[in-house]
């Protein structure tokens, strides 16, 4: 069973915050406006919103990756 998890390409991320606007259920912002993504798998009902967040990131710094088992917080 593979899960979909959010991962940030940190060198590309410039804290535009769009991902948080589109997926607040799974993405918080830190003191400086950079995303704090949930470590949990993206639940099925949010996968569509997660894909939108990935597509609309102005830096293309957010990805959905398939991982098996528990993943690191990235």
């Amino acid at each position: 069973m593979t899960d979909q998890r959010l991962r940030v390409d940190w060198p590309s991320c410039t804290a535009r915050g769009v991902c948080h606007e589109l997926l607040p259920e799974m993405i918080d912002l830190d003191d400086w406006g950079y995303p704090v993504t949930s470590r949990d798998p993206v639940p099925p009902e949010l996968v569509g919103f997660a894909r939108t967040a990935v597509r609309l990131c102005p830096q293309l710094a957010l990805r959905l990756v398939e991982v098996s088992g528990p993943g690191p917080r990235r």
Binding site: W10, P11, C13, T14, A15, D30, D31, W32, Y34
Partner: peptide, 12 residues
């Protein structure tokens, strides 16, 4: 200095 949370978080 490439990743925001490190560039800003470690000085903090």
């Amino acid at each position: 200095g490439r990743c925001g949370p490190c560039r800003l978080g470690l000085p903090a």
